[in-house]
């Protein structure tokens, strides 16, 4: 159980670093969705089923939909580098 939790935390950190540093905005948004899902699995490990259900629905479902809609409306370049 301990090793599984440590593996989940390492996965979480890797996904977060990818979401912050990736050059493609679409990839970052998908990474945030996966990130929320891993966080909800950690909530299940921490014996918090209510919080895990809410985090799974809100983070992986609604927030990703918000981001996708905003990306579609702003029509910005996929990659960063306009500076």
């Amino acid at each position: 159980m301990i090793y599984a939790t440590i593996g989940l935390v390492i996965l979480l950190v890797v996904i977060a670093i990818y979401a912050v540093l990736s050059r493609s905005l679409v990839a970052a948004i998908v990474a945030v969705g996966v990130f929320s899902f891993v966080v909800s699995v950690i909530f299940v490990v921490l014996q918090a089923p209510d919080v895990a259900m809410t985090q799974a629905v809100v983070g992986a479902g609604l927030t990703t939909a918000f981001f996708v809609i905003a990306l579609d409306k702003t029509n910005t370049d996929d990659t960063e580098g306009a500076e």
């Binding site: 209510d50 259900m53 809410t54 629905v57 809100v58 479902g61 609604l62 939909a65």
Partner: peptide, 12 residues
């Protein structure tokens, strides 16, 4: 579960 979780499911 509860009102918040179920409400978010309805809205999704």
């Amino acid at each position: 579960g509860g009102g918040f979780t179920g409400g978010v499911m309805l809205s999704s």
